[in-house]
Simulated assay, not measured.
Amino acid sequence: MTPLASARLHAFAYLSDVLSPVWDLPAFDGKILKIDGGPHYPDLQEELDHLVVLGLVEVSNLEYVGRGENGARLEGQYALNFASSFLAPLLAGLGAGKEDEAIDADDRRVHNFMVELAGALATLPNDEIDIAASVDVTYRSVNSLNNIVDFAEWAEDTWQANPSWQASERFEAFLPDDAELSPGEKLYLYATYLGRVANAA
């Protein structure tokens, strides 16, 4: 899935937030502004730009892309710079190395979740991945107030506010009584669902 286009990176960030309860993790950001072109996190983009300046991430194919009423956005293709001597220890500290190298034990769980979600989305063709976040159940929710999709930030009942989480848990209803799905299997099934909706769009 890399190098990763800006829009796809932000879509992945959104899907990781909205599906984090499947892994029993809190959302990093429980709300998103619904705009043309799919999810976009200005803070994430700023941090990504910092990583480019520090030489930890490489960017290519920069271009301005129109976003309807939201103007234009500078987008590119991003990839980790594995030539950087700082990258390996940094990733290890964030849970991508051995278990005892993680600065925080929870970072290992977050890393495992991200890898599983990336693997699930990678089973889809590129054109389906590109619009997966836009066809997500929560993102296209008609209950969005002023184009803000709030699934965990101010919502009193995060289960009710997050139809994506509900849908991923619903798959178990189709199994025999003595069977259950792992969190990873739920992510793969939800990715398959997104692909079908994207195909129908």
Rank of each mutant, 00 (worst) to 15 (best):
W165I: 00
A179W: 09
L48Y: 04
W23N: 04
I129V: 15
F151P: 00
R170Y: 13
E180V: 04
H10L: 04
A201C: 10
G76H: 07
P125N: 09
L33F: 12
A92Q: 13
Q166V: 10
A102N: 07
D127Y: 10
L44Q: 12
V149P: 03
N70Q: 15
P39I: 05
Y193T: 03
L15T: 00
Q160A: 13
A13P: 02
D36M: 07
F113L: 02
Y188F: 14
L181Q: 02
E58V: 04
V22K: 00
V53P: 02
N81K: 07
L121W: 01
A122I: 06
V18P: 00
D150E: 08
F151L: 05
K34T: 08
E153I: 04
D130I: 04
A7E: 10
L189W: 02
A96N: 08
T138G: 00
R108C: 10
F113Y: 14
S60W: 03
P21Q: 01
A200K: 12
A133L: 06
L44R: 08
D136P: 05
V57N: 06
W154R: 12
Y139R: 03
D150N: 07
R140G: 09
Y64W: 13
L44N: 05
L121N: 02
D24M: 08
L94I: 08
H10T: 03
I35A: 12
D104C: 11
A198P: 04
G71T: 10
D107L: 15
R196I: 10
A191I: 05
P21R: 00
E63V: 10
H111F: 15
N61Y: 07
A5M: 06
L51W: 12
A133T: 07
L94K: 13
S6T: 15
D130L: 06
Q77I: 01
K34Y: 10
M114H: 15
V22S: 00
G93E: 06
Q45K: 13
F82R: 15
V115P: 03
A83Q: 14
E99R: 14
I32R: 06
G93R: 10
D150P: 01
G37H: 05
M114G: 05
N147E: 13
S85I: 13
L145I: 14
A5V: 05
P176S: 07
E75W: 01
T192Q: 07
M114Y: 13
F28Y: 10
V59F: 11
Q77R: 13
V197E: 00
E46C: 09
L25D: 02
E99F: 12
Y188A: 15
D43L: 14
A198E: 03
E116L: 12
A167F: 07
V137W: 06
E180L: 03
A27I: 05
A118F: 06
A167G: 03
S164Q: 01
A152P: 05
P163H: 08
L56H: 13
A167R: 13
E101V: 11
A191K: 02
L121E: 00
F174L: 12
V65H: 11
N146E: 15
S20G: 08
G195P: 06
D177T: 05
E69T: 14
V52P: 04
A96M: 11
V53W: 09
Y78F: 15
A102C: 07
N112G: 11
V137Y: 07
D157L: 09
P89I: 11
V22G: 00
V18D: 01
H10S: 05
E169F: 06
S134C: 13
A11T: 03
A13D: 11
P89Y: 12
V197S: 00
V115M: 13
